[in-house]
Amino acid sequence: MTVFSSEVGVVGALLILVIVFTAIEPAFLSDRNIRAMLRVVSFIGIIAVGQVILLVAGEFDLSVGSVAGVGAVVAAQLMTSLGLPIALSIAGGMLTGATIGLVNGIVVVKVGVPAFIQTLGMLFIGQGLIQVITGGVPIYPLPPEVGAVGREKIIFGLGYSFVAFLIIVGGADFLLRRTVVGRNLYATGGNREVARLVGINTDLYKIGAFVTIGALASTAGMFVMADLASAPTSIGSGWELLVIAGVVVGGVSLFGGSGTIAAGIVGVLLLQVVTSGLVVIGVNSNWQQIAIGTIMVLAVGLDVVRRKLAR
């Protein structure tokens, strides 16, 4: 009930922002701008799905930007330097992301290092790995098929990344809402002790969520690579904060156990609308970050107040 009403609030805020930006500058709702916004949202959104699942299980991951970059440069290196088939290289990239997620999960859950520390550490390690793997220069050229995938337009002038985003969102939403695994994830994040007492293997669920977000982050990184037909070292840089900010604005609780995929995605979309809208109406780009920061604090403030009222 409260979750639902919070989604209504974010959707309302999103609509108001769209109306205001369009009123100031009608070009905001041009196909070109909408397309540009959705393109970014599909990259960030794929990771946001993983972050929502992980937050529901009661943990979070700051390393996703690095993991996206590592996944992309590993795949690029496999298909260029090692000359592996593209499919195998992509699988290698995903496996790399999943493995990093596994390491995060094991260290956080089994060793007991706080997720903040472990994943912040992994953010730095990932940045370093990108430099080590690439030697600091973009991996280019990639096999022509990769660039072709990136250029392909499927619906509304958007490509495979958008389609993948829609499929991942749909699948994850179903997972959380309709499956036993989803229910057990909510229980794990809501009260780990209770979850354990009703027979749920909470460690497994938490580690599984870390692996999932690792795999999704590397997938998003590889879509950017296809989009650019190149694997620069900057892929994913700074995404970790955008992803967290987005899902939190959507109303996914940082305390675990509550939030939906839809809410997380709406939050990511809202931040993208603000960023893009400020550019379109001609506000100095320096103000974008101030706006994002302010919105995030406001959104979490509302979440905290709502929780206080609910208890």
Binding site: G190, N191, V198, I200
Partner: peptide, 16 residues
């Protein structure tokens, strides 16, 4: 160590 406040009454009964 009993109730899951993030889930509804019904889901609290069926959890596990």
């Amino acid at each position: 160590d009993g109730l899951l406040f993030n889930l509804s009454l019904g889901r609290n009964i069926t959890i596990g």
